[in-house]
Write a protein that binds this DNA or RNA. Structure first.
Lengths: 193, 193
DNA sequence: GTTGACTATGCAATAAGTTGACTATATATC
DNA sequence: GATATATAGTCAACTTATTGCATAGTCAAC
Protein backbone atom coordinates (compact mmCIF):
# COMPACT_ATOMS: atom_id res chain seq x y z
CA UNK A 1 0.00 0.00 0.00
CA UNK A 2 2.74 2.41 0.86
CA UNK A 3 3.76 3.41 -2.63
CA UNK A 4 0.11 3.97 -3.41
CA UNK A 5 -0.26 5.96 -0.22
CA UNK A 6 2.61 8.18 -1.30
CA UNK A 7 1.10 8.65 -4.75
CA UNK A 8 -2.31 9.47 -3.31
CA UNK A 9 -0.72 11.96 -0.94
CA UNK A 10 1.16 13.70 -3.72
CA UNK A 11 -1.78 13.85 -6.09
CA UNK A 12 -3.99 15.19 -3.32
CA UNK A 13 -1.50 17.90 -2.38
CA UNK A 14 -0.30 18.89 -5.83
CA UNK A 15 -3.33 18.69 -8.03
CA UNK A 16 -3.33 16.81 -11.34
CA UNK A 17 -0.07 15.02 -11.98
CA UNK A 18 1.29 12.80 -14.70
CA UNK A 19 3.21 9.64 -13.91
CA UNK A 20 6.30 11.49 -14.92
CA UNK A 21 5.51 14.39 -12.60
CA UNK A 22 5.07 11.93 -9.75
CA UNK A 23 8.41 10.35 -10.47
CA UNK A 24 10.12 13.73 -10.48
CA UNK A 25 8.42 14.77 -7.28
CA UNK A 26 9.31 11.59 -5.46
CA UNK A 27 12.90 11.94 -6.61
CA UNK A 28 13.00 15.48 -5.31
CA UNK A 29 11.09 15.15 -2.08
CA UNK A 30 10.62 11.61 -0.81
CA UNK A 31 13.79 10.07 -2.18
CA UNK A 32 15.22 9.59 1.31
CA UNK A 33 12.17 7.58 2.42
CA UNK A 34 11.04 5.72 -0.62
CA UNK A 35 12.85 4.65 -3.75
CA UNK A 36 11.00 4.03 -6.99
CA UNK A 37 11.48 3.44 -10.65
CA UNK A 38 9.27 4.76 -13.40
CA UNK A 39 7.83 1.35 -14.13
CA UNK A 40 6.73 0.97 -10.53
CA UNK A 41 4.83 4.22 -10.65
CA UNK A 42 3.09 3.45 -13.94
CA UNK A 43 2.17 0.00 -12.68
CA UNK A 44 0.74 1.50 -9.50
CA UNK A 45 -1.16 4.18 -11.44
CA UNK A 46 -2.81 1.62 -13.72
CA UNK A 47 -3.88 -0.33 -10.68
CA UNK A 48 -5.25 2.70 -8.91
CA UNK A 49 -7.15 3.85 -11.97
CA UNK A 50 -8.70 0.41 -12.26
CA UNK A 51 -9.71 0.55 -8.62
CA UNK A 52 -11.18 4.00 -9.02
CA UNK A 53 -8.80 5.76 -6.64
CA UNK A 54 -7.60 8.05 -9.40
CA UNK A 55 -9.16 9.43 -12.54
CA UNK A 56 -7.07 10.29 -15.57
CA UNK A 57 -7.35 12.53 -18.56
CA UNK A 58 -5.05 12.46 -21.56
CA UNK A 59 -3.56 15.83 -22.40
CA UNK A 60 -1.91 16.53 -25.74
CA UNK A 61 1.21 18.66 -25.76
CA UNK A 62 3.07 20.19 -28.62
CA UNK A 63 6.57 19.01 -29.19
CA UNK A 64 6.15 16.44 -26.44
CA UNK A 65 4.39 13.11 -25.97
CA UNK A 66 0.85 13.12 -24.66
CA UNK A 67 0.54 12.73 -20.94
CA UNK A 68 -2.11 11.40 -18.60
CA UNK A 69 -2.96 13.76 -15.81
CA UNK A 70 -4.23 12.04 -12.67
CA UNK A 71 -6.68 13.43 -10.16
CA UNK A 72 -7.68 11.91 -6.86
CA UNK A 73 -11.27 10.65 -6.67
CA UNK A 74 -13.54 10.54 -3.63
CA UNK A 75 -12.66 6.90 -3.20
CA UNK A 76 -8.99 7.81 -3.42
CA UNK A 77 -9.38 10.53 -0.84
CA UNK A 78 -11.15 8.10 1.45
CA UNK A 79 -8.33 5.56 1.05
CA UNK A 80 -5.74 8.24 1.74
CA UNK A 81 -7.42 9.42 4.91
CA UNK A 82 -7.98 5.86 6.09
CA UNK A 83 -4.27 5.14 5.77
CA UNK A 84 -3.24 8.43 7.33
CA UNK A 85 -5.53 7.85 10.30
CA UNK A 86 -4.49 4.23 10.87
CA UNK A 87 -2.27 3.56 13.87
CA UNK A 88 1.43 3.89 13.16
CA UNK A 89 2.99 0.48 13.42
CA UNK A 90 6.44 -0.63 12.65
CA UNK A 91 5.08 -3.50 10.65
CA UNK A 92 7.33 -5.06 8.10
CA UNK A 93 10.40 -4.04 10.00
CA UNK A 94 13.13 -4.73 7.52
CA UNK A 95 16.59 -3.26 7.20
CA UNK A 96 18.80 -4.83 4.57
CA UNK A 97 21.83 -2.87 5.64
CA UNK A 98 21.61 -3.97 9.27
CA UNK A 99 21.01 -7.52 8.13
CA UNK A 100 24.19 -7.40 6.10
CA UNK A 101 26.03 -6.08 9.14
CA UNK A 102 24.50 -8.79 11.34
CA UNK A 103 25.91 -11.49 9.08
CA UNK A 104 29.06 -9.52 8.38
CA UNK A 105 31.21 -12.42 9.53
CA UNK A 106 30.12 -14.37 6.44
CA UNK A 107 31.98 -11.92 4.23
CA UNK A 108 35.67 -11.43 3.69
CA UNK A 109 36.82 -9.32 6.68
CA UNK A 110 38.72 -6.70 4.75
CA UNK A 111 36.10 -6.39 2.07
CA UNK A 112 33.49 -5.97 4.81
CA UNK A 113 35.44 -3.17 6.44
CA UNK A 114 35.79 -1.45 3.07
CA UNK A 115 32.08 -1.84 2.42
CA UNK A 116 31.20 -0.33 5.77
CA UNK A 117 33.50 2.61 5.22
CA UNK A 118 32.10 3.18 1.76
CA UNK A 119 28.64 3.07 3.29
CA UNK A 120 29.71 5.61 5.90
CA UNK A 121 30.87 7.90 3.14
CA UNK A 122 27.45 7.65 1.52
CA UNK A 123 25.74 8.35 4.84
CA UNK A 124 27.96 11.36 5.30
CA UNK A 125 27.14 12.79 1.90
CA UNK A 126 23.49 12.07 2.41
CA UNK A 127 23.45 13.99 5.69
CA UNK A 128 25.08 16.97 4.00
CA UNK A 129 22.63 16.82 1.16
CA UNK A 130 19.55 16.50 3.37
CA UNK A 131 20.71 19.41 5.47
CA UNK A 132 21.14 21.53 2.38
CA UNK A 133 17.59 20.61 1.40
CA UNK A 134 16.39 21.63 4.85
CA UNK A 135 18.17 24.97 4.66
CA UNK A 136 16.71 25.62 1.23
CA UNK A 137 13.19 24.83 2.47
CA UNK A 138 13.60 26.99 5.57
CA UNK A 139 15.00 29.86 3.54
CA UNK A 140 11.97 30.16 1.37
CA UNK A 141 8.85 30.48 3.43
CA UNK A 142 5.71 29.34 1.70
CA UNK A 143 2.18 28.33 2.54
CA UNK A 144 1.13 24.79 3.55
CA UNK A 145 2.14 25.04 7.17
CA UNK A 146 1.07 21.59 8.30
CA UNK A 147 2.47 19.83 5.24
CA UNK A 148 5.77 21.63 5.65
CA UNK A 149 5.96 20.77 9.32
CA UNK A 150 5.64 17.08 8.70
CA UNK A 151 7.85 17.04 5.65
CA UNK A 152 10.65 18.74 7.53
CA UNK A 153 10.10 16.50 10.52
CA UNK A 154 10.50 13.36 8.44
CA UNK A 155 13.63 14.79 6.88
CA UNK A 156 15.14 15.61 10.26
CA UNK A 157 14.21 12.17 11.56
CA UNK A 158 16.11 10.63 8.68
CA UNK A 159 19.10 12.86 9.37
CA UNK A 160 18.97 11.87 13.02
CA UNK A 161 18.99 8.18 12.11
CA UNK A 162 21.93 8.63 9.79
CA UNK A 163 23.88 10.70 12.29
CA UNK A 164 23.28 8.06 14.93
CA UNK A 165 24.59 5.36 12.64
CA UNK A 166 27.60 7.39 11.61
CA UNK A 167 28.62 7.98 15.21
CA UNK A 168 28.11 4.36 16.05
CA UNK A 169 30.26 3.16 13.18
CA UNK A 170 32.97 5.57 14.35
CA UNK A 171 32.67 4.28 17.90
CA UNK A 172 33.14 0.77 16.56
CA UNK A 173 36.42 1.85 15.00
CA UNK A 174 35.37 2.36 11.40
CA UNK A 175 36.43 5.51 9.69
CA UNK A 176 35.42 7.62 6.76
CA UNK A 177 37.74 7.26 3.81
CA UNK A 178 39.27 10.67 3.04
CA UNK A 179 37.46 12.39 0.17
CA UNK A 180 36.67 15.80 -1.15
CA UNK A 181 33.39 17.25 0.04
CA UNK A 182 30.67 17.37 -2.60
CA UNK A 183 27.61 19.55 -2.49
CA UNK A 184 25.75 17.86 -5.30
CA UNK A 185 24.12 14.51 -4.79
CA UNK A 186 25.41 12.23 -7.50
CA UNK A 187 26.02 9.16 -5.41
CA UNK A 188 23.66 9.61 -2.52
CA UNK A 189 22.24 6.63 -0.72
CA UNK A 190 18.81 6.99 -2.16
CA UNK A 191 20.08 6.90 -5.67
CA UNK A 192 23.03 4.57 -5.30
CA UNK A 193 21.45 1.27 -6.01
CA UNK B 1 16.31 -12.50 -1.01
CA UNK B 2 16.90 -11.03 2.41
CA UNK B 3 14.77 -13.40 4.43
CA UNK B 4 16.48 -16.25 2.65
CA UNK B 5 19.83 -14.66 3.33
CA UNK B 6 18.99 -14.52 7.03
CA UNK B 7 17.89 -18.15 7.03
CA UNK B 8 21.03 -19.25 5.20
CA UNK B 9 23.14 -17.32 7.67
CA UNK B 10 21.44 -18.89 10.66
CA UNK B 11 21.57 -22.44 9.32
CA UNK B 12 25.23 -21.99 8.41
CA UNK B 13 26.11 -20.69 11.86
CA UNK B 14 23.93 -22.93 13.97
CA UNK B 15 24.00 -26.27 12.26
CA UNK B 16 20.84 -28.24 11.45
CA UNK B 17 17.71 -26.30 12.32
CA UNK B 18 14.00 -26.92 11.99
CA UNK B 19 11.66 -24.24 10.71
CA UNK B 20 10.50 -23.82 14.24
CA UNK B 21 14.05 -23.39 15.52
CA UNK B 22 14.64 -20.72 12.90
CA UNK B 23 11.53 -18.89 13.95
CA UNK B 24 12.62 -18.94 17.59
CA UNK B 25 16.11 -17.78 16.72
CA UNK B 26 14.90 -14.91 14.58
CA UNK B 27 12.53 -13.85 17.32
CA UNK B 28 15.37 -13.89 19.80
CA UNK B 29 18.17 -12.38 17.78
CA UNK B 30 17.13 -10.61 14.59
CA UNK B 31 13.74 -9.36 15.70
CA UNK B 32 14.89 -5.74 15.62
CA UNK B 33 16.01 -6.01 11.98
CA UNK B 34 13.60 -8.42 10.40
CA UNK B 35 10.09 -9.41 11.31
CA UNK B 36 8.67 -12.75 10.27
CA UNK B 37 5.78 -15.10 10.80
CA UNK B 38 5.98 -18.85 10.87
CA UNK B 39 4.30 -19.21 7.50
CA UNK B 40 6.88 -16.95 5.88
CA UNK B 41 9.69 -19.12 7.14
CA UNK B 42 8.10 -22.37 6.05
CA UNK B 43 7.34 -20.90 2.63
CA UNK B 44 10.93 -19.74 2.29
CA UNK B 45 12.26 -23.13 3.41
CA UNK B 46 10.19 -25.03 0.85
CA UNK B 47 11.47 -22.71 -1.83
CA UNK B 48 15.06 -23.09 -0.76
CA UNK B 49 14.80 -26.87 -0.58
CA UNK B 50 13.40 -26.90 -4.10
CA UNK B 51 16.26 -24.75 -5.28
CA UNK B 52 18.80 -26.97 -3.56
CA UNK B 53 20.08 -24.35 -1.15
CA UNK B 54 19.10 -26.47 1.82
CA UNK B 55 18.75 -30.18 2.40
CA UNK B 56 16.29 -31.54 4.92
CA UNK B 57 15.87 -34.69 6.94
CA UNK B 58 12.74 -35.62 8.85
CA UNK B 59 13.38 -36.46 12.47
CA UNK B 60 10.83 -38.28 14.61
CA UNK B 61 10.44 -37.22 18.21
CA UNK B 62 8.54 -38.81 21.04
CA UNK B 63 5.72 -36.79 22.51
CA UNK B 64 6.20 -34.18 19.82
CA UNK B 65 5.48 -33.76 16.12
CA UNK B 66 8.13 -34.81 13.66
CA UNK B 67 10.43 -32.06 12.54
CA UNK B 68 12.49 -31.40 9.45
CA UNK B 69 16.05 -30.47 10.19
CA UNK B 70 17.67 -28.28 7.54
CA UNK B 71 21.31 -28.17 6.58
CA UNK B 72 22.99 -25.78 4.21
CA UNK B 73 24.22 -27.30 0.94
CA UNK B 74 27.21 -26.26 -1.11
CA UNK B 75 24.89 -24.30 -3.37
CA UNK B 76 23.41 -22.65 -0.29
CA UNK B 77 26.81 -21.75 1.04
CA UNK B 78 27.73 -20.27 -2.32
CA UNK B 79 24.55 -18.19 -2.34
CA UNK B 80 25.22 -17.00 1.21
CA UNK B 81 28.77 -15.93 0.45
CA UNK B 82 27.70 -14.26 -2.78
CA UNK B 83 25.19 -12.15 -0.89
CA UNK B 84 27.55 -11.41 1.96
CA UNK B 85 30.24 -10.27 -0.45
CA UNK B 86 27.97 -8.14 -2.61
CA UNK B 87 28.31 -4.38 -2.22
CA UNK B 88 26.16 -2.89 0.51
CA UNK B 89 23.54 -0.77 -1.14
CA UNK B 90 20.60 0.97 0.38
CA UNK B 91 18.41 -0.48 -2.30
CA UNK B 92 14.74 -0.68 -1.63
CA UNK B 93 14.94 2.21 0.74
CA UNK B 94 11.58 2.16 2.36
CA UNK B 95 10.40 3.47 5.70
CA UNK B 96 6.70 3.28 6.37
CA UNK B 97 6.94 5.25 9.57
CA UNK B 98 8.73 8.18 7.94
CA UNK B 99 6.28 8.05 5.07
CA UNK B 100 3.42 8.35 7.53
CA UNK B 101 5.14 11.31 9.14
CA UNK B 102 5.79 12.89 5.75
CA UNK B 103 2.07 12.84 4.98
CA UNK B 104 1.10 13.55 8.57
CA UNK B 105 -0.93 16.56 7.52
CA UNK B 106 -3.44 14.20 5.90
CA UNK B 107 -4.38 12.86 9.32
CA UNK B 108 -6.35 14.45 12.11
CA UNK B 109 -3.84 16.71 13.89
CA UNK B 110 -4.54 15.58 17.44
CA UNK B 111 -4.69 11.93 16.48
CA UNK B 112 -1.38 12.34 14.69
CA UNK B 113 0.24 13.84 17.76
CA UNK B 114 -1.06 10.98 19.87
CA UNK B 115 0.21 8.45 17.35
CA UNK B 116 3.65 10.01 17.34
CA UNK B 117 3.82 10.04 21.11
CA UNK B 118 2.69 6.44 21.29
CA UNK B 119 5.36 5.60 18.76
CA UNK B 120 7.93 7.44 20.88
CA UNK B 121 6.92 5.31 23.83
CA UNK B 122 7.54 2.17 21.80
CA UNK B 123 10.91 3.48 20.65
CA UNK B 124 11.79 4.20 24.23
CA UNK B 125 10.91 0.72 25.41
CA UNK B 126 12.71 -0.80 22.47
CA UNK B 127 15.90 1.07 23.32
CA UNK B 128 15.71 -0.16 26.90
CA UNK B 129 15.12 -3.67 25.75
CA UNK B 130 17.92 -3.70 23.17
CA UNK B 131 20.33 -2.32 25.73
CA UNK B 132 19.39 -5.05 28.15
CA UNK B 133 20.08 -7.57 25.40
CA UNK B 134 23.46 -5.97 24.78
CA UNK B 135 24.34 -6.10 28.48
CA UNK B 136 23.34 -9.73 28.62
CA UNK B 137 25.47 -10.59 25.61
CA UNK B 138 28.46 -8.68 26.95
CA UNK B 139 28.10 -10.28 30.36
CA UNK B 140 28.51 -13.77 29.05
CA UNK B 141 31.59 -14.10 26.95
CA UNK B 142 31.51 -16.87 24.39
CA UNK B 143 33.32 -17.96 21.28
CA UNK B 144 32.48 -16.73 17.77
CA UNK B 145 34.34 -13.46 17.94
CA UNK B 146 33.59 -12.18 14.46
CA UNK B 147 29.94 -13.17 14.57
CA UNK B 148 29.53 -11.51 17.93
CA UNK B 149 31.24 -8.34 16.76
CA UNK B 150 28.85 -7.88 13.87
CA UNK B 151 25.78 -8.91 15.79
CA UNK B 152 26.49 -6.39 18.52
CA UNK B 153 27.33 -3.75 15.95
CA UNK B 154 24.01 -4.16 14.20
CA UNK B 155 22.24 -3.97 17.54
CA UNK B 156 24.02 -0.78 18.50
CA UNK B 157 23.35 0.72 15.09
CA UNK B 158 19.66 0.09 15.64
CA UNK B 159 19.83 1.68 19.09
CA UNK B 160 21.62 4.67 17.59
CA UNK B 161 18.90 5.10 14.98
CA UNK B 162 16.18 4.92 17.59
CA UNK B 163 17.94 7.32 19.95
CA UNK B 164 18.38 9.77 17.10
CA UNK B 165 14.70 9.62 16.28
CA UNK B 166 13.68 9.97 19.90
CA UNK B 167 15.76 13.11 20.34
CA UNK B 168 14.47 14.56 17.12
CA UNK B 169 10.85 14.00 18.10
CA UNK B 170 11.57 15.73 21.40
CA UNK B 171 13.23 18.64 19.62
CA UNK B 172 10.11 18.95 17.48
CA UNK B 173 8.04 19.34 20.63
CA UNK B 174 6.62 15.86 21.01
CA UNK B 175 6.81 14.23 24.36
CA UNK B 176 6.70 10.78 25.82
CA UNK B 177 3.43 10.00 27.51
CA UNK B 178 4.10 9.29 31.21
CA UNK B 179 4.28 5.56 31.91
CA UNK B 180 5.85 3.09 34.27
CA UNK B 181 9.12 1.64 33.06
CA UNK B 182 8.96 -1.95 31.93
CA UNK B 183 11.89 -4.32 31.65
CA UNK B 184 10.09 -7.03 29.72
CA UNK B 185 9.30 -6.60 26.07
CA UNK B 186 5.60 -7.21 25.68
CA UNK B 187 4.78 -4.35 23.34
CA UNK B 188 8.06 -3.66 21.67
CA UNK B 189 8.25 -2.22 18.20
CA UNK B 190 9.39 -5.40 16.59
CA UNK B 191 6.44 -7.30 17.88
CA UNK B 192 3.79 -4.61 17.86
CA UNK B 193 2.25 -4.99 14.48
C1' DG C 1 24.02 12.59 -38.99
C1' DT C 2 24.36 10.22 -34.89
C1' DT C 3 24.55 9.88 -30.06
C1' DG C 4 22.71 10.85 -25.75
C1' DA C 5 19.53 13.13 -22.47
C1' DC C 6 14.88 14.36 -21.47
C1' DT C 7 9.92 13.75 -21.73
C1' DA C 8 6.35 10.27 -21.52
C1' DT C 9 4.01 5.76 -21.11
C1' DG C 10 3.15 0.94 -21.00
C1' DC C 11 3.12 -4.43 -20.23
C1' DA C 12 4.61 -8.98 -18.86
C1' DA C 13 7.07 -11.83 -15.94
C1' DT C 14 9.08 -12.77 -11.88
C1' DA C 15 10.40 -12.31 -7.16
C1' DA C 16 9.37 -11.30 -2.60
C1' DG C 17 6.54 -10.82 1.11
C1' DT C 18 1.97 -11.41 3.63
C1' DT C 19 -2.28 -13.46 5.26
C1' DG C 20 -5.37 -16.79 6.66
C1' DA C 21 -6.78 -21.16 7.21
C1' DC C 22 -5.68 -25.69 8.42
C1' DT C 23 -3.76 -30.09 10.89
C1' DA C 24 -1.70 -32.51 15.01
C1' DT C 25 -0.05 -33.79 19.71
C1' DA C 26 1.40 -32.80 24.54
C1' DT C 27 1.45 -30.35 28.60
C1' DA C 28 0.00 -27.08 31.93
C1' DT C 29 -3.56 -24.27 33.97
C1' DC C 30 -8.23 -23.15 35.46
C1' DG D 1 -13.61 -31.12 31.26
C1' DA D 2 -12.21 -26.87 28.97
C1' DT D 3 -8.82 -23.66 27.65
C1' DA D 4 -4.41 -21.98 26.59
C1' DT D 5 0.32 -22.53 25.23
C1' DA D 6 4.14 -24.71 23.01
C1' DT D 7 5.69 -27.62 19.41
C1' DA D 8 5.74 -28.57 14.39
C1' DG D 9 4.32 -28.14 9.96
C1' DT D 10 1.69 -27.12 5.18
C1' DC D 11 -0.80 -24.76 1.33
C1' DA D 12 -3.26 -21.44 -1.47
C1' DA D 13 -4.23 -16.95 -2.52
C1' DC D 14 -2.98 -12.56 -2.56
C1' DT D 15 -0.56 -8.10 -2.56
C1' DT D 16 3.47 -5.67 -3.38
C1' DA D 17 7.65 -4.74 -5.54
C1' DT D 18 11.19 -5.31 -9.13
C1' DT D 19 13.13 -5.99 -13.69
C1' DG D 20 13.47 -5.89 -18.40
C1' DC D 21 11.84 -4.59 -22.41
C1' DA D 22 9.44 -1.67 -25.83
C1' DT D 23 7.79 2.61 -27.88
C1' DA D 24 8.31 7.41 -29.51
C1' DG D 25 9.15 12.23 -30.07
C1' DT D 26 12.26 16.60 -29.16
C1' DC D 27 16.48 18.88 -28.52
C1' DA D 28 21.31 19.84 -27.96
C1' DA D 29 25.96 18.51 -28.58
C1' DC D 30 29.75 16.53 -31.15
Amino acid sequence: MSLKFAILGLVEQQGPLSGYDIKQTIERSIFYIWNVTGAQIYNALRDMREKGLLSAETVAQDGRPDKRMHQITDAGRAALVAEADAPIRDEALRDKVLLRVFFGNQADPEAMAREIEAYMARIHQEIDYLESVERRVLANPGPQHAARHFQLLSLRLKVAQLRGMEEEFRRAGYDLPATEPDQSNPTNIAKAG
